[in-house]
């Protein structure tokens, strides 16, 4: 089944009204800190350090971790549970701040933004897929997908049509009026993926997206995720311990003791 919405050109961006009036960037659309950043690098994490207090002890979770991600890539961060993958995603999305280091997304150093600016930045430019789906139980499936679009100011008709299209894309159009608790795990994750891509963010972060799914469902859901991300042109970073995710990755990083090591460029390996 084709999705006419996805084959259409990207939804044109509109300037934030405040920009033209006050000449100041809106928190959701800050001026890039480095406008000359490489065209192909969408994300640059530089020497990130993050530690947490555990009782009296300080536990270093990320130890001078650096990472660059090219636009449209699907990056898989592989590591065992508790290795710091989720912490890294929190820093990349602006949910949390590093103790040291910086995160630059499309030339915007988000570590310099205040909490509200980071939230509005996240709202506009980042999509999330969680291990436990994290759908809003009091919204229907369709409304869950519409929510990020509504937060980003999409018109009623537009968000409704887009949500239906994405729902169709993940094969759940017939469940649009259902509440999440009536769906299976796999179905919930498909809705979560549709929600993450619906407002066409530049970056989608997925934390153990198959962690709560069986192998078959997980593979199916990941396939849909991969396909949608490619079609919308979003960059995807997946944190997982699921080795099966390797096959969808453009690039793989291995997590170990708060640092990461590249496991190679999968496209190059495939070419080879």
């Amino acid at each position: 089944m084709t999705n006419p919405h996805i084959t259409e050109p990207r939804i044109p961006d509109k300037p934030y009204p405040g920009n033209s009036r006050a000449g100041k960037p809106h928190p959701g659309n800050p001026q890039p800190d480095n406008p000359h950043a490489g065209n192909h690098t969408i994300l640059n994490a530089d020497s990130l350090v993050k530690s947490y207090k555990e009782g009296e002890k300080e536990r270093m979770v990320l130890d001078h971790l650096s990472l660059s991600v090219a636009q449209d890539d699907m990056v898989v961060l592989l590591g065992r549970s508790g290795s710091g993958k989720s912490t890294l995603l929190n820093l990349l999305s602006g949910i949390d701040r590093p103790d040291k280091g910086s995160v630059t997304i499309s030339g915007h150093n988000i570590t310099r933004l205040d909490e509200k600016q980071r939230t509005l930045f996240r709202r506009a430019h980042i999509g999330f897929v969680f291990q436990s789906f994290n759908l809003i139980p009091t919204l229907t499936v369709l409304e869950n997908i519409m929510l990020p679009m509504e937060l980003n100011g999409f018109g009623d008709r537009r968000k409704h049509d887009a949500a239906r299209n994405y729902l169709d894309e993940v094969g759940l159009l017939d469940r649009s009026d259902t509440y999440p608790d009536r769906l299976s795990g796999g179905e919930q994750q498909r809705v979560a993926i549709a929600r993450a891509v619906a407002h066409e963010p530049r970056l989608i972060l997925a934390d153990e997206p198959t962690g709560n799914l069986d192998y078959k469902t997980g593979s199916h859901v990941t396939g849909i995720f991969h396909q949608l991300a490619k079609k919308t042109g979003s960059t995807v970073i997946i944190a997982t311990h699921d080795q099966n995710m390797r096959r969808f990755a453009d690039h793989i990083y291995l997590f170990n003791e708060g640092t990461i090591h590249s496991a190679g460029d999968m496209s190059e390996q495939a070419d080879a």
Binding site: Y16, N29, H108, A124, H125, L139, E143, L147, N152
Partner: peptide
């Protein structure tokens, strides 16, 4: 450079958020 996106100011409360909040109470 990242193109700007249409966003809301934080002064606006999404209708869906309202709906979600109200449904939470009406479900109990």
């Amino acid at each position: 450079m990242m193109p700007s996106r249409t966003t809301f100011t934080s002064g606006y409360i999404s209708g869906l958020l309202w709906r979600s909040g109200i449904r939470y109470h009406f479900r109990r």
